[in-house]
Simulated assay, not measured.
Amino acid sequence: EDLEAVVERLRGVEEAAATARQRAGRKRRWPVAEVVVETDDERLQVAVREHRDLFEQRLNAEDVVVPRSYGRLVETPDPRMDELGPAFGKQAHDVAAAVRQANVTEFPATVTGDGEEVTVAPEMVDIRRETPESVEAESVEYGTVYVDATLTTSLKREGVYRDLLRRAQELRDDLDVAMDEKVVLAVETDDTLVREALEQYREELRAEVRAERVVDDTGDADVTLEWSADGASVEVGARRAG
């Protein structure tokens, strides 16, 4: 099997992660906690592990892991009335309720239905396997890609920073400054999360935007824009330095 086939599978993983991310409602600029590539394909496992750093950047994920089996699926019993009815008659509904209440997932199992202990055989219950609430899954030819879209405070700050960076770069364009010309960037908000993100990423923001400094008052800005960051009102402004 040639390299081209492995590259094609990597592209498939990336596309699947993008689909799962979209289903979870996460914009591409916002990081996700984890991407899990569940596969038995050894060449794909090796390729993802060898290029883990690049994959984390391209998928905008804090971590990318490649297990043979995804360990966070939630198993839920789904009693089959077409099997329970003939076996237990009038007790069938009570037995089904007992199975659900006990969340039994290994059979045969003994449960109490209508005050009587009965044995439930494996064929009487289907087991549903579902992802946790914060996780979306997308199938690929050689496995399944899981995206954990849990938003921690740290990930929220990083997402806000990326939004700030994009809008600051737009303001540079609006000022029509030369590539190496410095600007003064201003970010004004009352929101705690945005302020925390600004403090954490102030130096990165200054360097990326080629700003002489980053201030907290947009009053002297030549160009400004407003947007809502995670529900908070933010105004960003810029002017030429000097």
Rank of each mutant, 00 (worst) to 15 (best):
D2R: 14
D2F: 12
A5R: 14
A5F: 11
E8V: 13
L10H: 07
G12N: 04
V13A: 01
V13R: 00
V13M: 01
E14M: 07
E15D: 08
A20G: 06
A20K: 02
A20C: 12
A24R: 05
A24D: 04
G25H: 14
G25Q: 10
R26P: 04
P31Y: 00
E34V: 06
V37C: 06
D40I: 10
E42Y: 13
R43E: 13
L44C: 04
R49H: 10
E50M: 06
H51I: 09
F55H: 07
F55E: 02
E56Y: 01
Q57Y: 14
L59F: 08
E62D: 06
D63S: 15
R68E: 13
L73V: 05
V74G: 07
P77W: 02
R80K: 09
D82H: 10
L84K: 02
A87C: 12
D94G: 08
V99G: 03
V99Q: 04
A102V: 09
V104F: 06
P108H: 11
T110D: 07
T112D: 12
E117H: 14
E117S: 14
E117K: 14
P122I: 06
V125S: 04
I127K: 07
R128D: 11
R128W: 09
R129L: 12
S134W: 05
S134D: 15
A137K: 11
E138Y: 12
S139N: 12
Y142W: 15
G143Y: 00
V145Q: 05
Y146L: 06
V147F: 04
V147A: 02
T150I: 09
T153E: 07
R157M: 06
R157G: 00
G159W: 01
V160Y: 03
R162K: 06
D163V: 01
L165P: 03
Q169N: 15
Q169H: 13
D174Q: 15
L175D: 07
D176M: 15
M179G: 08
M179F: 15
D180F: 08
E188S: 06
D190H: 03
D191H: 03
R195H: 06
A197P: 03
L198V: 02
L198N: 00
L198P: 00
R202C: 05
R202K: 13
E203Q: 13
R210M: 14
R213Y: 10
R213G: 11
V215G: 05
D216C: 09
T218I: 09
L225S: 00
W227T: 00
G231L: 11
S233A: 09
R239P: 14
A241W: 03
